[in-house]
Design a protein around this nucleic acid. Structure first.
Length: 753
DNA sequence: GAGTTTGAAACT
DNA sequence: CAGTTTCAAACTC
C-alpha cells in the first residue's frame, strides 16, 4: 500500500481527489484470506494502526465474493456476489484510519477477499441514534454516512450497514445485543442490474426485530474503466457522526439520481441521498484513500490520510454521482407507501433537489429507456433539450384519463379530422410534426389543461412512441419553446408519457400528407426512402450508430428510415441489448466541468500509432488516455512523433493559407492592372498579348514568382523543384495575362461591332 | 478511382 | 474474454 503525499494529491485525477474521496480499488480475487491487503497495510502505511478495537459498532467492509460471510457477520446471504461493501461487527484490524478529529477510528481490514472498514461509533452518534429512535429512520442515520460512488466494474454490489440506533452508549454495538434496534442496511449495486438479495445484519441476525430496515439501492454504473480493473470503489465521502446531536437535518442524501430500490420486504422506495452539510460534522474529508484508476488493479493507494483538521469547518462536498454514472439512464421507482426510506425529505440540503419523476422515453427496452427529469408543470408540449445532441426532443403528455378528453371547454367531438400538428416557429426551422401516421389519426383534441398547444390522439390503444436511437440522459430545459414539435396524449395513458422525436423524423414526415413542414431552411430535403431488401441496421452504418436516420447517404436497401420504424426499433433494441452504450457518443467530456474531451471507451489501435485518422482519439483530436488499449501509441502529450506531426500539419496549414492569400492578392492585382490597360485596347485595338505586360503587370508577376520561391524555400524543396514551381507559376501568370488580353480584345471587338 | 490498410463493431 | 469476421473509412498509388 502506498501512501501518497499531500503534494501528490493535487496531481491525482480529479475523479479521485475532488470529492475528497476514499478510493478503493478492487481486492484481488486471489486473496482468499485477505492477507495481502493486510500485509500491505501493515508494511507501508504510516497510519496509526488501530489494533485495540475488538468491538466495532460500525464497520464497513469490502467483500469480493460470497464467502465473505465467513468473516463478516454483516453479510449473511450467499447470493451476494462480487464485491460488496458491508458492515461487519467483527473486528478485523489490519488498517485503521484514525486521526485527531475522529474519535472513532476507521479500520480497514481485509479477509477473504474483503477490505473492511471498521469504525467505532462515537458516543455522540449513539446518543443521536438514541434520541432519534423513531422506527422510520431508515436512512436517517446520524451515526455514519457513506456516500459511495464507483468507477469500477458493473455488477458490484455494495452493502452498507448503518449503525444500530439502539445501541448502548459506550458499548460496542456489535455485541449482538438482542434488545438493540435492528441494524439497517443498504445494498448498493453499482452497475448492472444484479439481483439483490436480502441482507441480514450481523447484529440483528440473531434476534429478528420487528422493523428490520434493509434497503437496497441499485445504481446503474458507468462502463468499466478498464478490463484490467475488475472493481474500483471510490468512497466519495465518509462522514463521521461525531459531534452530532439528534439533528434530523443530517440525513444522507445522494444528490440526484439513481435508483431502484429493491428491499426484500418493503415496497420499492426512492432513496434520495444527499451530502450531509452540517458543519458540525467531523468528516473524513481530509482523509483520502485513493485507488489508482489507472492500470494497477491490485495496488491500493492511500492518499493523504494523515492531515486531518479537527475543526468543524468542513467544506461541503457534492457527490458526483452523475460522474460515476456517466450517461446511464436510471430508473426511479416511486414509493408506493409511506416509507422510512424517505426520511431524506427532512434533510435541509435536500431542499435543493428538484422533485423527480420517472419518465418512460420509449418502450423498447424497458427501464433502459427511462430517465429522470424534473417534474414539470408546463403544458403538454415541451421541449427536451439534450446538450450536445443533434436531436430535437419533444415531450408528449398523455391524457389524464383513459379516454380522450378535450380542452377545458370540453372534449372534441370530431371523430375524424386531419391531424393538426402544432407548428412551432423556431426561427430557422419552422415545422410541425405529427406523432402518428396519418392513417391512424382520428381525433384532434386539446389538452385538458391550460396549455394552448394542440395535441393529437390516435386510435391506437397505446401511444406510439418514437424514440431516438440514443438513450441519452435527457436533461430537459423547459424554459424555452421547442424548436419543433408536437405531441399527443395517449388515450388511456394514466401517466405522463413522452415521445422523443429526433429531428430527422421531421424530414421523413414530409411524406405524410398530414405533415405541414413549413421549412425554410436548415433541414435538407429528404432524398426519398430507398427500396429495401435487407436491414443495414448495424453498427457499420454511421447514421444508425449516431442515432440518426439515413438521409442523403449512400447506403443501399436502407431500413434506417421512418418507413421501417418497426425494424429500426427492433435493431435499436438489439444493439442496446448487446451494448447499452451503443448509441452514446464516443467522445465526451471526461468529467463535469472539464473542458477536456475524452474517448469513452478508448481506442484499440495497433498499427497506426494512434497518429492517423484510423484512431478515433486522433481523429477527434484528443490524446489517448489510460483507458485506451492501443499498442505503440504515439498520441500523447510528450510524443515527439505527435509534435512533429502537429508541426507539419500546422506548417502545411499555414502554407496553404499563405499561398491562397498570395494568389488571391496577385490575381486581383493582375486583373486590376489589366483592366487599367483596357482604354489602350479600345483606342488602339489589335494589340498582341505581350503588349498588356505593363510595368505594373510585370511587378505583380515578379511578386508572384518571388512568393512562389519563398514557398518552395519554406517547404525545403530541392532547387530543381523550386525552379519548376516558379516556372509553373510564371506560366500561370502568363496565362492570366493572355486570358485577360483575349477577353479585352473580345470585349473591344464586341464594342466596336 | 482502384486497391490496400486499418480499426471498430459484430460475431463466435 | 479472446479470437475471428465483417465492414466502411482512411489511406496510398
Amino acid at each position: 500500500m502506498d501512501v501518497v503525499s499531500p503534494e501528490l494529491n493535487s496531481l491525482l485525477p480529479d475523479e479521485i481527489m475532488d470529492t475528497e474521496a476514499i478510493v478503493m480499488e478492487d481486492v484481488p480475487a486471489s486473496q482468499p484470506d485477505g492477507t495481502a491487503v493486510q500485509s500491505e497495510s501493515g508494511d507501508d502505511v504510516p497510519i496509526p494502526m488501530e489494533t485495540d478495537t475488538p468491538v466495532v459498532s460500525e464497520n464497513l467492509s469490502f467483500c469480493s465474493d460470497a464467502s465473505s460471510t465467513e468473516h463478516t457477520q454483516a453479510l449473511t446471504t450467499s447470493t451476494i456476489t462480487d464485491s460488496m461493501l458491508s458492515i461487519s461487527s467483527e473486528s478485523q484490524l489490519p488498517l485503521t484510519l484514525s486521526s485527531a478529529s475522529l474519535s472513532a477510528p476507521f479500520t480497514i481490514s481485509a479477509a477473504n477477499h474483503q477490505i473492511i472498514l471498521n469504525k467505532v461509533a462515537s458516543s455522540q452518534a449513539i446518543e443521536a441514534a438514541k434520541s432519534a429512535s423513531s422506527s422510520t429512520q431508515a436512512v436517517k442515520q446520524e451515526g455514519q454516512k457513506f456516500l459511495v460512488r464507483t468507477i469500477g466494474k458493473s455488477g458490484q454490489p455494495i452493502v452498507f450497514q448503518l449503525p444500530s440506533t439502539g445501541s448502548k452508549p459506550g458499548v460496542g454495538q456489535a455485541s449482538g445485543d438482542a434488545k438493540s434496534q435492528a441494524p439497517q442496511f443498504k445494498v448498493v449495486t453499482i452497475g448492472g442490474r444484479t439481483e439483490l438479495k436480502p441482507v441480514i445484519g450481523s447484529t440483528a441476525s440473531q434476534v429478528p426485530t420487528p422493523t428490520p430496515q434493509v434497503k437496497t439501492v441499485q445504481i446503474t454504473n458507468k462502463t468499466q474503466v478498464s478490463s484490467a480493473t475488475p472493481i474500483k470503489f471510490i468512497i466519495a465521502n465518509t462522514v463521521n457522526s461525531k459531534g452530532l446531536t439528534a439533528q434530523r437535518s443530517v440525513s444522507p442524501v445522494i444528490a440526484g439520481r439513481v435508483l431502484t430500490q429493491n428491499p426484500p420486504v418493503l415496497p420499492p422506495r426512492t432513496i434520495t441521498l444527499s451530502e450531509p452539510l452540517n458543519t458540525s460534522i467531523q468528516s473524513m474529508s481530509s482523509k483520502k484513500i485513493a485507488i489508482s484508476p489507472l492500470k494497477t488493479p491490485t495496488k491500493l493507494t492511500v492518499v493523504s490520510v494523515a492531515s486531518q483538521i479537527p475543526t468543524s469547518t468542513q467544506k461541503p462536498m457534492t457527490l458526483p454521482v452523475n460522474v460515476a454514472l456517466g450517461q446511464q439512464i436510471l430508473t426511479v421507482q416511486q414509493p408506493t407507501t409511506a416509507s422510512p426510506a424517505k426520511v431524506v425529505s427532512s434533510q435541509s440540503t435536500a431542499q435543493n433537489i428538484k422533485p423527480l419523476q420517472s419518465v418512460a422515453v420509449g418502450g423498447v427496452s424497458g427501464s433502459q429507456f427511462k430517465t429522470i427529469i424534473p417534474l414539470a408543470t408546463q403544458p403538454n408540449v415541451q421541449q427536451i433539450q439534450v446538450p450536445g445532441s443533434r436531436f430535437h426532443y419533444v415531450r408528449l403528455v398523455t391524457a389524464t384519463t383513459g379516454s380522450s378528453t378535450g380542452q377545458t371547454s370540453g372534449p372534441s367531438t370530431s371523430s375524424i379530422q386531419p391531424a393538426k400538428p402544432m407548428v412551432v416557429n423556431t426561427g430557422a426551422v419552422r415545422m410541425s410534426v405529427p406523432i402518428v401516421q396519418a392513417q391512424t389519426m382520428k381525433q384532434v383534441v386539446r389538452k385538458p389543461l391550460t396549455s394552448t398547444a394542440q395535441v393529437v390522439t390516435t386510435s391506437h390503444p397505446q401511444q406510439r412512441l418514437i424514440m431516438p436511437a440514443t438513450p441519452l440522459p435527457i436533461q430537459p430545459n423547459f424554459t424555452n419553446l421547442p424548436p419543433g414539435t408536437v405531441f399527443a396524449p395517449a388515450p388511456g395513458g394514466g401517466n405522463v408519457g413522452y415521445a422523443v422525436v429526433p429531428a430527422q423524423y421531421v424530414t421523413q414526415f414530409q411524406q405524410s400528407p398530414y405533415v405541414t413542414l413549413a421549412s425554410s431552411s436548415g433541414f435538407p430535403a429528404c432524398s426519398g426512402i430507398q427500396s429495401q431488401a435487407r436491414l443495414p441496421l448495424n453498427g457499420y452504418c454511421d447514421c444508425f450508430a449516431n442515432g440518426e436516420f439515413c438521409n442523403n447517404c449512400n447506403c443501399n436497401n436502407c431500413f434506417n428510415n421512418l418507413e421501417h420504424e418497426t425494424e429500426r426499433l427492433k435493431a435499436i433494441k438489439t444493439c442496446l441489448d448487446r451494448n447499452p452504450e451503443a448509441f452514446k457518443p464516443k467522445i465526451g467530456k471526461g468529467k463535469d466541468g472539464e473542458s477536456d474531451r475524452r474517448h469513452s471507451k478508448g481506442c484499440n489501435c495497433k498499427r497506426s500509432g494512434c497518429l492517423k485518422n484510423y484512431c478515433e482519439c486522433y481523429e477527434a483530436k484528443i490524446m489517448c488516455s489510460s483507458i485506451c488499449k492501443c499498442i505503440g501509441c504515439k498520441n500523447f502529450e510528450e510524443s515527439p512523433e505527435r509534435k512533429t506531426l502537429m508541426h507539419l500539419a500546422d506548417a502545411a496549414e499555414v502554407r496553404v493559407q499563405q499561398q491562397t492569400a498570395a494568389k488571391t492578392k496577385l490575381s486581383s492585382q493582375i486583373s486590376d492592372l489589366l483592366m487599367r490597360t483596357a482604354p489602350v485596347i479600345s483606342s488602339g485595338g489589335g494589340r498582341l498579348p505581350y503588349t498588356f505586360v505593363t510595368k505594373e503587370v510585370l511587378e505583380a508577376t515578379c511578386e508572384c514568382l518571388i512568393e512562389q520561391a519563398k514557398q518552395a524555400e519554406l517547404s525545403h524543396q530541392p532547387q530543381a523543384q523550386a525552379e519548376r514551381l516558379i516556372l509553373e507559376e510564371f506560366g500561370h501568370c502568363l496565362m492570366r495575362i493572355i486570358s485577360s488580353a483575349g477577353k479585352a480584345k473580345t470585349d473591344c471587338a464586341s464594342i466596336n461591332c
